[in-house]
Design a protein around this nucleic acid. Sequence first.
DNA 1: TCTTAATATACTCAACAGAGCATATGCGTG
DNA 2: CACGCATATGCTCTGTTGAGTATATTAAGA
Lengths: 114, 114
Amino acid sequence: MESAFAIIAEPKRRAILSLLVSSQRSVGEIERRLRMPQPTVSKHLRVLREAGFVESTVDAQRRLYRLKPEPLQEVDAWLAQFRRFWSAHVDALERHLDRMDQSTPMKRKTRRKR
Amino acid sequence: MESAFAIIAEPKRRAILSLLVSSQRSVGEIERRLRMPQPTVSKHLRVLREAGFVESTVDAQRRLYRLKPEPLQEVDAWLAQFRRFWSAHVDALERHLDRMDQSTPMKRKTRRKR
DNA sequence: TCTTAATATACTCAACAGAGCATATGCGTG
DNA sequence: CACGCATATGCTCTGTTGAGTATATTAAGA
């Protein structure tokens, strides 16, 4: 379960992370909002905690879980290398469209600039 | 194996994607550059192809594989919701630091503005 | 057409992850 | 201090996945 990528491969864990992005939540809140059995929630929270995605504080019998940014930022950093590729792709597409424009000048004005 | 997230959970697949970001490659090139057995490469390429991460064209006996942007963009879109959280986090940290500044004014000038 | 290079696929095996259920732990309250 | 709520953990079972090895497919070239 090493990598951050493996952690977010699990749909229910992604749901938990998405829920925590707005504010911290107790286990019971997560359980009710996501309609998951309590042991399932606790087990996924354990995985998330050990991987550094969340941290918890004790509030009487409750544990309040909240997001930590680092692991998701790591994923984001890996994705960065592909963003340049996407823009290059868009550029190539636009150059292609521009070439089409030259053959059909009537449509040129419908094209937006970057 | 449905989701894009599950696909990139595999380290070797991430390596292949990273390799393809610079240019398209044949199976043999991937095999040599990443030091993977050929069946391993082919199997991962199949998974990547069926999930829409790559596409291939035939060049004599070779197959040239290249990236397709959509699935990674989907991952990127999911991550977007957390970026606001990160900046909020940084803001909170900075407010905290600013409060510290008020108690130790001497250090204030070392703080950079946003 | 025989051969060789490039790639894909089939099959088996071992490891692991998630679900479900039962149960343990810990804290507050009467 | 006994009970109840909130949460964590243990255990078993099952499905899936990746590795490894062998083999099939397809095209090029002598």
